[in-house]
């Protein structure tokens, strides 16, 4: 079987770390900077970074609508932090560009500013034990999710990891830790 080709949106942010994580697991990673880089990819990762910057660049390079169409047709997508924000249908107090494929409402910088950023061991039953080392950096939370959305993990009662069919999103950064369980979970989604 051909190796899964995972596109990593490389407009801005921590895309190299995601590419390295999927490569460690034996999949192929391709940095996606322009529309043409999207052809032939089996899945897409939208990294952490600045969601307003990435959203604007998606619009400016004409990639927002084609990417949304691919996801709506079933292409697996995983968004971390800024990536989660871009996937959400509703963003509190913001009209910034978004893909809007995840039936959820997100609050940006929900825990506060950088001095409030934190690391914690997160219970995430889908990934088994031990708890997942989760890094939250100016992180968002989901303040509301639709009926098709399954919550995979919570912090203080608010959803920080969710799945809706082919869409996976976390408000933390697995790409900043050596633990590859979350990327493995996503690659398994890509095989089904």
């Amino acid at each position: 079987m051909a190796r899964t080709l995972v596109g990593v949106l490389a407009l801005q942010g921590a895309f190299r770390e995601h590419a390295a994580a999927v490569a460690r697991l034996g999949a192929e990673a391709r940095e996606v900077r322009q529309l043409k880089d999207m052809s032939g990819i089996d899945a897409m990762i939208i990294p952490g970074g600045e969601s307003t910057t990435i959203g604007k660049l998606l619009v400016e390079w004409g990639m927002l609508d084609p990417l949304r169409e691919r996801i709506e047709k079933g292409m697996p997508v995983y968004g971390s932090c800024a990536g989660l924000i871009l996937l959400c249908r509703e963003i509190e107090n913001s009209n910034q560009p978004r893909l809007g494929v995840l039936d959820a409402t997100v609050r940006r910088n929900a825990f506060g500013r950088q001095v409030d950023s934190f690391e914690t061991d997160l219970e995430m039953p889908e990934l088994g034990l031990p708890p997942f080392p989760a890094v939250f950096i100016r992180a968002p939370v989901l303040t509301g999710v639709g009926s098709r959305v399954r919550v995979l993990a919570n912090v203080k009662g608010q959803a920080v990891a969710v799945r809706q069919d082919n869409v996976l999103a976390t408000s933390f950064h697995p790409e900043l830790t050596p633990d590859v369980r979350l990327h493995r979970y996503f690659l398994e989604m890509c095989r089904k």
Partner: peptide, 10 residues
Amino acid sequence: TGLAEMLKGG
């Protein structure tokens, strides 16, 4: 260092 990682390419 993680926040700086998020600023990359920016």
